[in-house]
Amino acid sequence: MSTSPRLASAVDGKSANIRTVMRHSPKVREAFDAMYATLWSGGEAPVDVKELMRLRNARVTDCGL
């Protein structure tokens, strides 16, 4: 599994990571962040349950990040 960015940082002076790489497409990043924030802030499910779901999903998909 790769945990190293395959694209260069889009932010001068910053190393490549998920945030600086996604700045290559800032509008997409902003829209993604907005939806992600809604997932965490809205709805009926408690945040701790959402975090367990996120971690379980990461385990199932073998996400090293």
Binding site: K27, V28, A31, F32, A34, M35, A37, T38, G42
Partner: peptide, 19 residues
């Protein structure tokens, strides 16, 4: 059924199609 999520989903779709 979840207006905020629907709006966020539509926003990201609009952004992708306009990329």
């Amino acid at each position: 059924m979840h207006a905020g999520l629907a709006a966020g989903h539509q926003q990201i779709l609009d952004t992708l199609w306009d990329s």
